[in-house]
Design a protein around this nucleic acid. Structure first.
Length: 397
DNA sequence: TCTGGGGTCCTAGGACCC
DNA sequence: TCTGGGGTCCTAGGACCC
């Protein structure tokens, strides 16, 4: 018989980056630990639970955290290590089902509807939690609910090492009393607006009568949020989501603001190198190049340019970065620079684009000519190499 | 609280095409 | 020619999440 409801787990690694470091070095387990850049402009990405006792938490500036907890140990963060742990974490989950949607590096949704035919959901959650602790030394909280939204809200209710069930009939007692800013999707901009019109809790949102006033704050997301507040969420756990990366970027905040054009270009060059390295590693090619410039007053601009064809060649991408910066350079001190690429596709798809020609010859010729021509592209802002190709097959309407 | 770095998604206007 | 309607792509900014 077909079930009329689903059983969704949201599995959330507790203090993930810190937990990885503690798994690697158990001596860190009982000391307050934060992960982040240990300098004046540093911010913590994670704090372990001993550190949280001092009021230290993620997104807190390192200066502030040290004030609250002078003996806080701060480690710089090793993303490759965390990536490996994350993969092992998901490998354990995949042993139970492949209907898993990654939420981020440290959380995922599992649709275990069919698995719980023969195991009680709570027993299954306990088993998964214990295994992750035994095998990887990683603590998780698990939310159990009939949909993704409620599972997510549930996993947040008890940390660390919590298991929380949130059924439809629990919504009134467990969800509605929560402050509105705890709701997924309500951030620090929307929260004050909701408060201003008298909404403090998720329950207040459910019972709000002036729909017009509410729509001014929530726009056309209004139905989305009201549904969620009722505990309604029809999304399916979608394993394909978030598997394919949509953009790759690097950015840096500088200890001292950059004052000169040359200093900015030097850093943009390095950032572009990092981005291209990752493009190559992922075997992807990109179509749009974006730079980000944040000034000392925290105002920021983004400027982007879309190429006529996808590429992962350094000289192609850097030529665009250089031109975008040239066009937007000012005397204002620069706090942060960023380079990112988007419109990513698999590198093998480029061959498909050229398949009407002799593939091998077209590719080698292209690789060769592009390096030479990218400088000219930078000057004229167009892709000269492909202009001729394009003109042959566009006029057809 | 003087505010990182990795991302995703949405909106809105303009260009351009049919 | 005094003015449309639908669709897609590009660009810039912004909100949000971990």
């Amino acid at each position: 018989m077909k079930k009329t409801y689903k059983v969704i787990f949201h599995v959330d690694l507790n203090a993930f980056f810190a937990s990885c470091e503690m798994a690697e070095d158990p001596a860190l387990k009982n000391v307050p630990l934060g992960i982040g850049g240990n300098h004046e402009r540093g911010v913590l990405t994670t704090a372990n639970y001993p550190a949280r006792k001092y009021g230290v938490h993620s997104a807190m500036s390192v200066v502030e955290a040290k004030r609250k907890c002078p003996h806080l140990v701060i480690l710089p963060g090793r993303h490759d290590l965390y990536q490996r742990y994350s993969e092992q974490f998901f490998d354990v989950l995949y042993e139970y089902t492949h209907k898993i949607e990654k939420g981020s590096i440290d959380e995922g949704y599992m649709d275990v509807t069919h698995h719980v035919d023969h195991t009680h959901p709570i027993e299954l959650a306990k088993e998964i939690q214990q295994r992750l602790l035994d095998e990887l030394d990683l603590p998780v909280s698990i939310g159990i609910a009939p949909n993704m939204f409620l599972a997510k809200m549930a996993s947040d209710m008890k940390k660390p090492l919590g298991i929380t069930v949130l059924r439809k009939r629990d919504v009134k007692m467990k969800l509605w009393p929560l402050p509105i800013e705890k709701m997924m999707g309500i951030g620090k901009k929307t929260y004050p607006d909701l408060k201003r019109i008298g909404i403090q809790t998720i329950g207040d949102l459910v019972h709000y009568e002036d729909r017009h006033k509410l729509s001014i704050v929530l726009g056309n997301q209004i139905d989305y949020f009201v549904d969620r507040a009722h505990g309604i969420d029809h999304r399916e756990v979608d394993p394909a989501r978030y598997i394919e990366m949509k953009s790759i970027g690097h950015s840096e905040t500088y200890l001292k603001n950059l004052q000169t054009y040359q200093a900015c270009m030097d850093h943009l060059y390095q950032l572009t190198k990092k981005v291209v390295k990752r493009l190559e590693k992922d075997q992807s090619i990109a179509k749009t190049v974006t730079i980000q410039v944040r000034y000392n007053d925290f105002n920021q601009i983004t400027r982007s340019h879309t190429l006529e064809h996808h590429t992962n060649l350094f000289y192609d991408i850097y030529a665009v970065v250089e031109r975008l910066y040239d066009e937007n350079h000012t005397e204002r001190p620069v706090r942060l620079l960023g380079v990112s690429v988007s419109g990513l596709i698999d590198a093998s798809e480029r061959i498909d684009q050229l398949s009407i020609y002799d593939v091998n010859e077209a590719l080698t010729k292209e690789e060769h000519v592009r390096k030479v021509i990218s400088g000219i592209n930078a000057l004229y802002g167009q892709d000269l190499l492909h202009k001729g190709v394009q003109d042959d097959n566009t006029k057809d309407d």
